[in-house]
Design a binder for these strands. Structure first.
Length: 1000
DNA sequence: CCTGCCCCATA
DNA sequence: GTATGGGGCAGGA
């Protein structure tokens, strides 16, 4: 149909008072599809998630414009689509966008629907043969801007960023982000006017724009900033210093020019519909409502009916024309099971279900623990996982039935579903329970409907038990001393429940069971354990909530899908427990689990909840200082190098140092590139080169800025104003903890600049931070384990251990010792702990392999017990596949018997190190487990905040500091006892101050 | 957008 | 030579 007045000149041109909104319909479809909850469907199964997002956005933009404030509404509006995949660009470069994957199957019917939606809202729907939507948008935007009007492009497509200017803006509704010049700069490193120059160099693998090989966004921006544009750069390509880059720029010059043509948008498309025809017309209420009703968008239908005065009840759903779509027979999708689903008594789990533990059934009665454990594993493996047996609990009476069942059984696996991986911020969305294999339920508590996404709506899905009421029913069971609660990674669930006033206990943790039994054999995550022990692949999280950009929080997941996923988690957890728990006794690991692992959960959970204060202003000032320092060093570097380059790129740096400047490159990395690590740079610096010194300086500042001063403030919890790290109990082979998000176990300390970061960790007003650390704990453990008389005596006498070592080895007196000699001995001592090699020691000390070998030989002569210990450990690990710590913890090295000599040597060194590092880890764990009670018993309120392998950090009121320090020292120094009497004393140094740096 | 690589912060 | 976590870059899905 031809618009009646399509060439009517009487439609007025746009003026400065006009505001044109151009929606990039094509990319919107794809992005909405990925951003919105998966599997939103109409009752007949028609997938409509993208259409729903589109309609919401359209309505909001038409009525409000970009912001809810008045006066922002558009005067002109159009939605632009791609017409077909072939465009003039394919004539220039046939491969352009050639590798685009086919759109997902359930998206295909939505293409037509979105065009219908546009028409239903009375909005021009524009597409034109041979041109991409981007070219049409570019043309219309340029025309309107030339008339003086304001233009807003609604898209997240980076290719459109080249259009941004004084009158033309861009908004990404999916991210709710306005894209202006600063954002373009952030993305491309240049302003909008240079975007195409950068793109023509860097290329774009998504669209198959080739660019120039070896040049990414960073380098491209660097080059364009230096040369201004592509042609100038290509003209001067021969003078580029880096050989590889020069060659590529010359060889691929034509390819870059083609790329530029591909990315340059066409601003002069002979458009069929003039921009003046985009004047906004009132939405035809009945027409829009008819369409929305057909789509079953209830919320939006209501909203638009109200706004337009249309009588929704009297309007029939519109007829939809959907090519390629046939509604399936009215079988209906699986509905959530109602409150009465399932029988009122627990279903029999099947005759093969194991009896509850503790009540050893007669046939198994005479088996050894090992047989029992193996039989149990086989038994569990045979019960299939069946999602259809799970119940969705929507009714408080049913919940009470489940709780009663758990109380009666005495064992329940439970799992929480939340909105975040950060236990400190996660909102509870649901709880799942399992009482026997195959008997599990999910209790949704906080699911919302997804339609409110773009409008901020999204109320609770009706029918769920109110959160508070459900928790009141669950609490007595979760805290009942007679009911064992089992979880996978319990610390997380414990935290979430603690924030709702529930202290879960007693408990078991399948992740820790696995870690205790199998540390070093592989991961301890649930999916992995399920594969390993049950031969079952649980529903992947990404299948339920999506992944990456399109991931939704769990509260937006449809309840029936959430239910299958969540109930399965509890079911699998229970099964894993049934398999793993009997192994504790069979493999004599029950004590390790019960004294070193399980009780750590509440201790760490409390430490994480407390968090630590950081001084945001101080870090912000530091970021500024570091930035200034980097800028200063940067210009010196460019001057020394004779050109600008990306210092942060090891590849480019290597080209400059070893290519252009021809410095002798000592080492290469395993991929064959020049190594530019500090040790290499230091060597060059020692030869008198200035540039490497500056690089090291720049690197240090860059590291401190990006990893610490820039990143740490982002971890301040908005509610508590403190930083809450997360400790992992099960991610090292040796028994150490690890810390992440943020990692507070690698806060700088060695350099002056680094210690400024540490100063930003502060005590609250009226409080002090106390740092207490073990002195030389690993060497002391080594002295004990390997039973070395000289070492033991030195520690007993409180001597300087490295000086003593030097004295023994080189026969020099400790008094007035040359610091260099002591330094060598210190390096050797560390080397021993790491399973020394001549290669490593040589690298560390900057001496020859032969010389290092001589040192080691001499060391073993003086301390033969060390060599004996090392040989014994190697023998042990080859025979058993694991080694143990002083307290019985196992570290497995399943691949130690490999025939690859260097791999083998690596595992042997690791095995030598593990009992030392691991015993020290056990000791500080024991101290941590006793610390809280000891402090409370001493009448102190002081609390433990952090652990850094051999150091504990506390926060105490000033008045308590003096009394607290002796208690802390006593607990830490006596941590081995009474289980073990170490043959060397443990020594703890403790200090209090206003910040971490001064306390350390 | 994810992954491998390189480099670097700590004990 | 041991044990970690994390940031930036570049390349390939």
């Amino acid at each position: 149909m031809i618009r009646a007045m399509s060439n009517d000149a009487s439609l007025p041109a746009l003026t400065a008072n006009d505001h044109l909104i151009l929606v990039d319909g094509s990319t919107f479809i794809f992005r909405a599809y990925h951003a919105l909850p998966p599997l939103t469907r109409k009752s007949d199964g028609l997938p409509v998630g993208a259409v729903s997002g589109f309609c919401n956005m359209l309505w909001k933009l038409l009525t409000e414009g970009l912001t809810p404030e008045k006066g922002d509404e558009p005067t002109h509006f159009a939605v632009i689509f791609d017409h077909s995949s072939k465009t003039f660009r394919n004539d220039i470069y046939p491969a352009y966008k050639a590798q685009r994957p086919e759109p997902p199957e359930d998206l295909i019917p939505q293409f037509g629907l979105i065009r219908q939606a546009t028409r239903a809202f009375n909005v021009p729907c524009i597409e034109q043969e041979g041109f991409e939507a981007d070219d049409l948008i570019a043309t219309y935007a340029t025309q309107a801007a030339a008339m003086g009007a304001r233009v807003t492009i609604v898209s997240g497509d980076k290719d459109l960023m080249q259009l941004i200017g004084p009158r033309i803006g861009m908004i990404d509704t999916m991210k709710n982000k306005i894209i202006g010049e600063p954002e373009v700069f952030e993305k491309f490193g240049v302003g909008p006017d240079k975007v195409i120059e950068v793109q023509s160099l860097a290329g774009d693998s998504v669209d198959n724009v080739p660019g120039v090989p070896g040049i990414g966004l960073k380098t491209a921006a660097q080059l364009i900033l230096e040369y201004g544009d592509l042609e100038t750069l290509l003209a001067n390509a021969a003078s580029i210093k880096q050989p590889k880059r020069r060659e590529n720029l010359i060889e691929f010059a034509e390819q870059a020019r083609i790329s530029k043509q591909l990315v340059t948008l066409k601003c002069d498309v002979p458009v069929e519909t003039p921009v003046t025809h985009f004047a906004v017309e009132a939405v035809n209420g009945p027409q829009a409502v008819g369409f929305l009703k057909a789509m079953e968008f209830t919320t939006l239908t209501r909203r638009i009916a109200e706004a337009t005065g249309a009588e929704a009840g009297n309007i029939d759903p519109a007829e939809l024309t959907i090519p390629g779509w046939h509604a399936p027979d009215a079988k209906g999708r699986m509905m959530e099971r109602g409150p009465d689903a399932g029988s009122s008594t627990p279903a029999a789990p099947g005759s093969t279900a194991p009896a509850a533990p503790g009540s050893a059934p007669a046939p198994e009665g005479m088996m050894t623990p090992q047989h029992l454990a193996a039989a149990r594993a086989e038994e569990i493996r045979r019960i299939p996982v069946d999602h259809s047996t799970y119940e969705t609990v929507m009714d408080i009476e049913r919940l009470k039935v489940w709780v009663a069942e758990a109380m009666e059984t005495g064992i329940v696996a439970f799992d929480t579903e939340t909105t975040s991986l950060d236990a400190m911020q996660a909102e509870l969305v649901g709880v799942s329970l399992a009482t026997r294999p195959g008997r599990a339920c999910y209790v949704p508590l906080g699911h919302v409907d997804g339609e409110g996404d773009l409008l901020g709506g999204g109320g609770l899905v009706p029918g769920q038990i109110p959160l508070r009421a459900a928790l009141d029913v669950l609490k007595p069971m979760l805290e009942d001393p007679g009911v064992l609660k089992i979880a996978q990674n319990l610390k997380y669930d414990w935290q979430v429940m603690a924030r709702h006033g529930i202290e879960v206990g007693p408990h078991d943790d399948t992740m820790l069971l696995s870690y205790t039994l199998d540390a070093g054999k592989g991961g301890n995550g649930m999916d992995e354990l399920s594969e390993r022990w049950l031969g079952h692949t649980p529903i992947p999280f990404k299948d339920v909530a999506g992944s990456g950009k399109s991931m939704v929080t769990f509260d937006k997941v449809e309840i029936s899908r959430a239910s299958a996923y969540a109930a399965e988690d509890a079911d699998v957890t229970l099964r894993l427990w049934l398999v793993l728990k009997p192994r504790l006794a069979a493999e004599a690991m029950a004590t390790v689990y019960e004294t070193l692992e399980r009780p750590m959960v509440p201790v760490l959970a409390r430490m994480e909840r407390r968090g630590i204060s950081i001084d945001r202003q101080m870090l912000s000032r530091l970021s500024g200082e570091f930035a200034q320092g980097m800028a200063a060093v940067e210009s010196e570097i460019y001057a020394l190098a004779g050109e600008a380059f990306n210092i942060g790129s090891p590849k480019q740096l290597g080209d400059i140092l070893f290519g252009k400047m021809g410095l002798p490159g000592g080492k290469k990395t395993k991929t064959g590139a020049w190594s530019t690590s500090v040790s290499v740079l230091d060597d060059l610096a020692a030869e008198g080169h200035e540039l490497p010194v500056k690089i090291v300086e720049w690197r240090q500042l860059a590291k401190l800025k990006s990893t610490y001063s820039d990143a740490l403030p982002g971890f301040i919890n908005p509610e508590t104003k403190r930083v809450h790290t997360s400790y992992s109990l099960a991610s090292t082979t040796t028994g150490r903890l690890s810390s992440s998000e943020p990692n507070l176990q690698n806060i700088p300390v060695r350099t002056e600049a680094g210690r400024k970061i540490r100063k930003a960790f502060v005590a609250e007003k009226g409080n002090k931070l106390i740092s207490a650390d073990y002195s030389q704990i690993e060497l002391r453990v080594l002295a004990h384990i390997a039973d070395i008389p000289q070492l033991k005596k030195a520690f007993a006498d409180g001597l300087d251990i490295h000086a003593m070592t030097a004295s023994e080895m080189f026969g020099v007196p400790v008094k007035d010792m040359d610091p260099m000699v002591r330094r060598r001995a210190k390096a050797i001592n560390f080397g021993i702990i790491y399973g020394i090699s001549a290669f490593g020691l040589a690298a560390q000390l900057g001496i020859s392999r032969g010389e290092a070998g001589d040192y080691i030989k001499m060391y073993f002569q003086r301390f033969p017990g060390i060599r004996d210990y090392m040989e014994a450990v190697k023998k042990e690990v080859h025979e058993k596949g694991f080694v143990t710590t002083l307290f019985g913890r196992k570290a497995h090295y399943p691949d130690v018997n490999t025939s690859n000599p260097s791999m083998r040597a690596f595992f042997e060194r690791a095995a030598i190190n593990a009992p030392i590092q691991g015993s020290a880890a056990d000791i500080i764990r024991r101290a941590m487990l006793r610390m809280e009670d000891a402090l409370v018993d001493a009448g102190l309120k002081i609390r433990m905040l952090l652990q850094v392998h051999d150091e504990l950090i506390f926060e105490a009121e000033e008045a308590e500091v003096e009394a607290a320090i002796p208690v802390i020292r006593r607990v830490m120094e006596g941590a081995c006892e009474p289980l073990l009497q170490l043959s060397v004393p443990l020594q703890v140094d403790a200090r209090a101050a206003d910040n971490w740096d001064e306390a350390h």
